[in-house]
Amino acid sequence: MSFNPLEHRGIPLDRQLRNWRELDVEPTDPDHADPYTRCRIITMNGIEVEALMFSHHFARQCPDMEVKRKLAEIRYLEQQQQKVVNWLLPGTASALETTIAYEQVAVDLTAWVARMEPDPYLTQAYEFGVLEDFDHLYRYANLYEMVQHRKAEKIVDGLTEVIPGRPTKYHHRHPADNVRTPYDKSTAAPISKLHALTIMSAEQQTMNFYMNVGPQYMEPIARQLYQEIGLIEEEHVTHYESLVDPGETWWERLVLHEYNECYLYHSFMQTESDRRVKAIWELHLNMELEHLHAACDLMRANDGREPEEVLGDSLPEPVTFEPNKEYLRELLDTQIDLTTLGEGYVRDAHERFERMQAAIHGGEDPPSERVIDDHAALFDGADYRLSTEGAHPVEELRR
């Protein structure tokens, strides 16, 4: 049965404030929790952080004191939501274990979005990016076995393969070639807008995480790998944020942010295996319904438009975390050698790409290559990979 958030009321704003006891949620068990429960937690943290930062940026541009006060009220409540969601992650997990989980999110969430996206141009943008996240997972998994002497299969649980993707060293492109053509807000399907916002938020969270945790390591190869992949996450955020139509008003964006939160909390309620976590998704959905209605009221009052002009008449099909192994294998077969040129994609290296490669690598192997060599030196000449379908034939491109 379809669910239209515009037709449902939630918990009134003046009843949403929680005390410390309510905010002090018990974290999930890292040894027994469903890996996709962790993925849902990481995703919703990224969504909440994006909503908070958007609200702050909006407030800095807004001269209307009443609007600023309403934004501040909702933002404080969403700060509490973010704290609850992110604090579900166990304190026993290392930064590197959380990193591998972040990359599992990037792989399976982006692959799912690519499969469901109705616009072929946007689909291509997601397919291009996911092959790079796929390779990041492989590089970090090799680092994990070297540094912590544990295998990434304990984290991803065989749901996501850990094999080489488009080699990380080829992800370094001239910044101008990371900017894509945006969708047209007047013709784009509502689901396309939600997809772009979701993946942008997830990649932004990863970029911020790597910027902060990278220098906390003592091992030189770990510090260097985080630095390299952190720069690529900057490219990915540029890639995905440029898909959003800059002609959307602040009011449209506000409504879309709140609607997307409703969409994802509602989606994750459908498949969550942990009853305690599912109860949090349900509670937050009921909070977000009122945030959405407040945003819609602001749009009507300040933009003179109805939210139905921006949103659909019901939520799309739920977002689902599920294995995407066959889909990713097909992309590896057909798109591993792609790079970007201007706003499009090409198979052949071009002058601007080659200049960037020469400048950033300086004639040496980057950390993403050395981490594989260092792993091989420690483990009888072998890299770490977790394949559930046998070796893949296109190996010469993947180091």
Rank of each mutant, 00 (worst) to 15 (best):
M1Y: 10
R9I: 13
I11E: 04
Q16F: 02
L17I: 08
N19Y: 00
E22M: 00
E26K: 04
T28P: 00
D29C: 08
P30D: 14
D31G: 12
H32S: 15
D34E: 06
G46M: 08
E48K: 04
V49I: 14
E50L: 07
A51I: 11
S55V: 13
H57M: 12
A59T: 09
C62G: 06
V67N: 10
R69L: 06
E73A: 07
Q79A: 06
V84F: 00
V84K: 00
V85H: 01
N86K: 04
P90A: 11
A93Y: 11
S94C: 08
E97W: 07
T98S: 08
Q104L: 05
A106D: 04
A106Y: 03
W112C: 02
A114N: 05
R115I: 06
E117M: 12
L122T: 13
T123N: 08
G129Q: 13
Y140H: 15
N142T: 09
E145R: 15
K151M: 04
I155D: 03
G158L: 05
E161G: 07
V162N: 11
P164Q: 14
G165F: 07
P175K: 08
A176L: 15
N178P: 00
N178Q: 12
V179E: 08
V179N: 05
T181S: 10
T181Y: 01
T181V: 14
Y183G: 12
K185N: 02
K185S: 06
A189T: 09
L197A: 04
P215C: 04
E219G: 12
Q227P: 01
Q227K: 05
E228K: 01
L231M: 11
H239Y: 10
Y240G: 11
E241G: 05
S242H: 13
D245G: 10
D245N: 10
W251E: 12
L254R: 09
E258L: 02
S267V: 08
S267Q: 06
S267L: 13
M269I: 10
T271L: 02
T271I: 07
S273H: 13
A279I: 03
W281F: 13
E290W: 03
E290K: 04
H291M: 04
A295W: 06
A295T: 07
M299L: 05
E309M: 11
L311Q: 09
G312A: 14
L315Q: 08
E317W: 02
T320G: 01
F321V: 11
F321P: 07
Y327L: 11
R329D: 13
D333F: 06
Q335C: 10
Q335S: 12
D337R: 14
L341M: 14
E343Q: 14
E354D: 08
Q357F: 00
Q357E: 00
H361F: 02
R370V: 00
A376P: 02
L378S: 09
D383R: 14
Y384T: 09
R385H: 15
R385L: 15
L386V: 10
A391R: 13
H392N: 13
E396G: 04
R398S: 12
